[in-house]
Write a protein that binds this DNA or RNA. Structure first.
Length: 828
DNA sequence: GACCTGCTGCGGGTTG
């Protein structure tokens, strides 16, 4: 149930919240209706989810309840002495934790409560860590990982006795991933240790808000979502191509828009320029720096592979207003607000509705003012995505974040944590974890397999003592007897895994960040490369550290990373598809009108009820282009699937290229193709079996297994301060484990988990199935255009990339583009 | 003349 905050009801009017209202008044504020509503519900003993945009007083809404409770009860004001905390505040980000701890501390002080507020994250002060550890903090701000750590101490059960309230900030960020699952387990533990406390989640707008509440509060199925302040209106504008200035048909960098972006940057004081990839951010930063008229210190770069010190510098500049522009990736999507930012720009595809909203919201918060983002297209078809995002926002079509279920690696980790944290009884813990959303369906046999796994590693590994982590004592209690195992486990707590990266350092010390081994492998000492917004020269590579010196200038490749795939979200893709057929009045659609005319004339326009297929024969062979608009990952699986099935009908050699709109299947030999065959190739029946055969499942599962093995505690983590392990080392140990298990214990729970995750995450099987079913219901427009079309051209250029040098590639693309332009000139 | 693909997040210590 979703309730909007109304005027406070009678109970509140009776004045239970008077102390806070008075305090607010003294600050010159007036509590909002949703705040008083949240306080009232808290005082009535309720848990719930508070749905409200950032910067709207949600902190005081969530903190107010426990404050009021304490103000009316002298016993609750007494500082805790080992049984604390009273309030546990969970946030997914360290930086946010710091900010929150400060804000909560000021409030506590302002109200004259003798409480201690402490921060418990990896980088918290020793004092704060000690307070947390000894249960002497009244208010504790913590991350899901640090909470797991606290639960791993033998006296954990006595350190949460005073708990009255748990607040989970930015719950939408955790809901859809394994970090959220780890937190679900932690919360279930807290409910056991301290029955009766209340839990409040804070969430931004989300497609599955009700589900978000149910996952957070499985123990309170009739709890409510309180809607806070109205979400800020967000407007989207596009840096339209100038009259006659056309946009490229392919590509994603957007540097052709540099002069116009540059002008926009100097219209205001401070801007955030968002890109989709780290390499793209590096390129844009470099391009801007080459024409930057002000002090270089006013332009900065921010992404996840930069040294935290460099990132902090950029953030500080945004905070104190000295920064003019920061080029950033998602590393600045979240977290602390930067009131000095006047304007947000997004280069290239927004990828998702929620993502664009989030970025738009990073601009200055002024009461009553709407959020705004200026979209900068890198290629023509992206214009449609901007219009689609605007349309989706208008009717509230925002993405859901589906919560994971049954992640046995996380469960195994949690079980070892609790075995450390005073030990557990199998049956009691079974009931406890079944109380979470993620493991509500856990059966006895699987639970037993998890227990066997932590006790002896499973049958194939039982001879190796390092996998026998947990012992069962005479009372049937599961415990960790070995201190080394305890240390190892605490070191590998958490669900975030990443492969070893090479850190980049100056000879005289001073880290710049990290790059991937694969990128450095292409360089020799003396070579130059672009990273961290600088031109660097590689001096030498020592283990997992690259020593560099600053190069005056010169080229060299820009650092690249092989990150996630970020497929276009289903919501956005559907909207894009709809706009092709029903352009409406969006200015972006007017700008692509001639392009759509070409597409319609030479082939057909996509539509919600129509699937466009193009068959084009070139010297290379026969190309089939198909446009299901289902995102990269799905298209990859779909292309593999169709190649396999087609090969069964007729022997041939297949290759494919994919993007977010569709894929291109290339056949070495020309083949017959009609609608009936196409439909057969896309038949949803038997998809799973065919995928198993068609994609290299073994290799995918091997990779997925590496991450699962880490979370489950099978891989020995490198100790802090010691050299990081190279990818090859980790690959070797996880690969060995994988092979051993496959051979001697093929039913091992983690192997099954790896395969499941390959289907779910890498192949996006649920979305693939949905796409296939959806295609079944559509009419087919099987066209045979004489030349590449606006939709097929980008895929064709993509397919050339692997085969040609950059230069030849450029020439080929340019020539093809020129030919196309001539052919289509009469239409455009 | 149009072109360089792929994000983010966390985490030790039983002592000073």
């Amino acid at each position: 149930m979703n309730v909007a905050a109304r005027a406070p009801r009678k109970t509140a009017a009776k004045g239970r919240d008077a102390p806070l209202v008075a305090w607010f008044a003294a600050q010159g504020w007036k509590p909002a209706a949703f705040q008083r509503e949240t306080w009232r519900r808290y005082l009535d003993g309720e848990s719930g989810l508070l749905h409200t945009p950032t910067g709207s007083g949600k902190t005081l809404a969530a903190f107010g309840g426990p404050l009021l409770e304490a103000l009316s009860d002298p016993a609750a004001q007494r500082p805790v002495t080992g049984e604390g905390p009273r309030v546990l505040w969970v946030t997914p980000l360290r930086a946010l934790a710091v900010d929150t701890a400060r804000a909560l501390g000021q409030t506590v002080q302002g109200l004259g409560l003798p409480w201690t507020v402490a921060l418990r994250t990896g980088d918290a002060s020793a004092r704060d860590k000690r307070l947390a550890r000894q249960g002497k903090a009244d208010v504790l701000v913590i991350t899901p990982e640090s909470l797991a750590l606290l639960l791993s101490y033998a006296d954990a059960s006595s350190r949460f006795r005073a708990l009255r309230c748990v607040v989970v900030d930015e719950w939408h960020e955790l809901l859809g991933n394994k970090r959220g699952v780890l937190l679900q387990l932690g919360l279930a533990r807290l409910r056991r240790l301290s029955p009766g406390h209340r839990t409040w989640g804070l969430s931004a707008t989300l497609g599955n808000l009700d589900e978000a509440r149910e996952v957070l509060l499985p123990q309170a199925p009739d709890s409510v979502s309180v809607s806070g302040a109205k979400p800020r209106k967000v407007t989207i504008s596009t840096l339209m191509p100038e009259r006659d200035g056309r946009l490229p048909w392919a590509g994603h960098l957007g540097l052709s828009q540099l002069p116009r972006v540059f002008k926009r940057l100097f219209d205001v004081r401070a801007s955030l320029l968002f890109t989709n990839t780290r390499a793209q951010a590096e390129l844009w930063h470099r391009a801007l720096a080459s024409i930057w008229p002000e002090s270089p210190a006013t332009l900065a770069l921010h992404h996840g592979s930069l040294d935290p010190k460099l990132r902090a510098l950029a953030e500080q500049g945004l905070r104190d207003g000295s920064m003019r522009c920061v080029v950033a990736t998602s590393s600045l999507d979240l977290g602390v607000d930067f009131p000095a930012v006047d304007q947000v720009l997004q280069v290239g595809s927004p990828k998702g509705v929620g993502r664009l909203l989030q970025r738009a919201g990073r601009a200055k918060h002024r009461p009553g003012e709407s959020g705004h983002v200026i979209c900068v297209p890198a290629q023509a078809l992206e214009l449609i995505e901007y219009a689609a995002a605007r349309a989706a926002i208008a009717h509230g079509g925002i993405e859901s974040r589906p919560p994971p279920r049954g992640s046995l690696d996380v469960l195994a980790q949690h079980a070892v944590t609790l075995a450390l944290g005073g030990g557990f009884q199998a049956d009691a813990l079974y009931e406890e974890v079944r109380g979470t959303h993620a493991y509500a369906g856990l059966d006895r046999a699987t639970w037993q397999a998890v227990l066997d796994f932590i006790v002896q590693g499973g049958q194939a590994l039982s001879n190796y003592p390092e996998f026998r982590r947990v012992e069962i004592d005479a009372e049937g209690c599961y415990r960790v007897p070995d201190r080394r195992i305890a240390l190892r486990h605490r070191l590998s707590i958490g669900t975030i895994t990443s492969d070893g990266a090479v850190s980049v350092k100056y000879l005289r010390g001073g880290g710049l960040g990290s790059v991937e081994e694969g990128f450095l492998a292409r360089l020799r000492p003396g070579d130059r490369f672009q990273f961290a917004g600088r031109t660097l020269q590689l001096v030498r590579l020592e283990g997992m550290t690259a020593y560099v010196r600053r190069a005056k200038d010169g080229d060299g490749p820009v650092a690249t990373w092989q990150g996630g795939r970020m497929p276009l979200s289903t919501q956005l893709a559907r909207e894009v598809e709809r706009l092709y057929a029903h352009p409406g009045t969006h200015p972006e659609m007017r700008a692509v009108a001639s392009l759509l005319r070409i597409q319609a004339d030479a082939s057909a326009l996509p539509d919600s009820g129509r699937l466009v297929a193009e068959r084009i024969v070139t010297r290379k062979g026969m190309h089939l282009f198909l446009f299901p608009f289902a995102g990269r990952a799905v298209h990859e699986a779909l292309a593999a699937l169709m190649a396999l099935r087609w090969g069964r009908v007729q022997a041939n050699t297949f290759s494919y290229t994919v993007n977010d709109y569709g894929f291109m299947l290339t056949l070495a030999e020309t083949a017959e193709l009609d609608e009936a065959l196409l439909r057969r190739l896309m038949d949803p029946a038997g998809v799973m079996d065919d995928l198993r055969e068609g994609v290299n499942l073994g290799e995918l599962a091997r990779r997925q297994f590496r991450e699962i093995a880490r979370v489950a505690g099978l891989l020995v983590p490198s100790l802090p301060g010691r050299a990081a392990k190279s990818l090859r080392q980790v690959q070797a140990s996880s690969g060995l484990l994988y092979d051993v298990l496959r051979r001697y214990d093929p039913g091992h729970l983690l192997l099954a988990q790896a395969e499941r995750e390959v289907f779910e995450f890498q192949l996006e099987a649920p979305r693939l199935l949905a796409a296939l079913r959806d295609c079944q219901g559509r009419s087919l427009a099987l066209c045979e255009p004489k030349a590449l079309t606006p939709l097929s051209f980008p895929l064709w250029t993509e397919s050339l990339r692997g085969q040609l040098s950059t230069e030849t590639w450029q020439t080929r693309v340019a020539r093809a583009a020129a030919q196309l332009q001539k052919r289509y000139a009469r239409l455009a």
